[in-house]
Design a protein around this nucleic acid. Structure first.
Length: 296
DNA sequence: AATTGATTTCCTGTTT
DNA sequence: TAAACAGGAAATCAAT
């Protein structure tokens, strides 16, 4: 009955994770220049993080994911390969280009981007200093804070992963977070479907896993496809993934053991299929979307 | 304020 | 023996 709720700090997390991380997120990018970014960075830099024109391909991709998410549109409904472009190219697309590239979702994307660009021009001054928590990120972190809050995880001294990665995705990207501005148009746009209910903070565990798999640049050997076409994958650095997940959920005590329990619950919902006999191996089930190559 | 879906936490037992 | 796997039970959290 009585649970030992007291020993919360006894997790050797950082040590184990550190030792597991070796990729671009690991030692290479250890915090050297964090302070700069952490404490009020120059407006110019901020602009670069925020304005679509300066986005990297990955940021474009993030924006896409996020926008679809916000509008409850299935990520499989648009060909992502048409958006394997950086911000400059994205901004060069016309309304028609968007329609060509994303079909019926094109207009919505065009709209969203236009508003973002527009906000980007005036947003900076509305960005109160206290919002600049810093760092940030981790991948699926949102670029578009349509929902009032930004995506900061503000885990102050956890520069295990994030960090000065080459994809400064969401730094201050909480552009329109400022109340009183016209960011609500996006909110009030009619929803395409009601299929999904609440999706706290954008991503579920399985989507988080999927997104790691789908982003080689962001996946320094954390999880690997075993059979791409069948949706079979394997954890290479289970504890590191758990830490990352915990970071996303602002839970520093996440472990693979706990993460895997959540994974097992997915079997019943057919989001994952059981792959027995093989440790750390899972397979996407019929209810998992957006992982197939053909889905893109 | 109550409900609920999705985990999170803990645990005991089994398998690799 | 140390990790993983299996699930049950209960707690937690955020969205509604």
């Amino acid at each position: 009955m009585v649970r030992n709720t007291s020993c919360i700090m006894s997790i050797p997390s950082s040590a184990s994770v550190d030792s597991q991380l070796t990729g671009p997120w690991g030692s290479h990018y250890t915090s050297t220049d964090v302070p700069t970014v952490a404490s009020g960075f120059p407006g110019r830099l901020w602009q670069q993080e925020t304005q679509p024109q300066y986005w990297t391909k990955f940021q474009v991709w993030e924006w896409l994911q996020q926008t679809l998410d916000v509008h409850q549109i299935d990520a499989t409904s648009i060909p992502f390969q048409n958006f394997d472009i950086d911000g400059r190219q994205l901004c060069a697309m016309s309304f028609q280009d968007f329609t060509r590239a994303a079909g019926s979702v094109g207009p919505l994307l065009y709209q969203s981007l236009t508003e973002l660009r527009w906000n980007g021009q005036y947003g900076s001054e509305l960005f109160a200093p206290l919002d600049i928590k810093t760092e940030v990120d981790d991948f699926s972190c949102s670029i578009l804070p349509y929902k009032e809050e930004s995506c900061f995880y503000s885990c102050t001294n956890t520069d295990l992963f994030e960090t000065k990665d080459p994809f400064p995705s969401s730094i201050a990207v909480s552009t329109p977070a400022s109340p009183g501005t016209d960011t609500k148009k996006l909110h009030s746009r009619p929803q395409t479907s009601q299929m999904k209910k609440h999706n706290p903070r954008g991503t579920h565990l399985w989507e988080f896993i999927r997104d790691i798999l789908l982003n080689p640049e962001r996946n320094p050997g954390l999880i690997k496809w075993e059979d791409r076409s069948e949706g079979v994958f394997r954890f290479l650095k289970s504890e590191a993934v758990a830490q990352l997940w915990g970071k996303k959920k602002n839970n520093s005590s996440m472990t693979y053991e706990k993460l895997s329990r959540a994974m097992r619950y997915y079997y019943k919902r057919e989001i994952l299929e059981r792959v027995d006999g093989r440790r750390l191996v899972y397979k996407f089930g019929r209810n998992a979307r957006g992982w197939k190559e053909s889905d893109k």
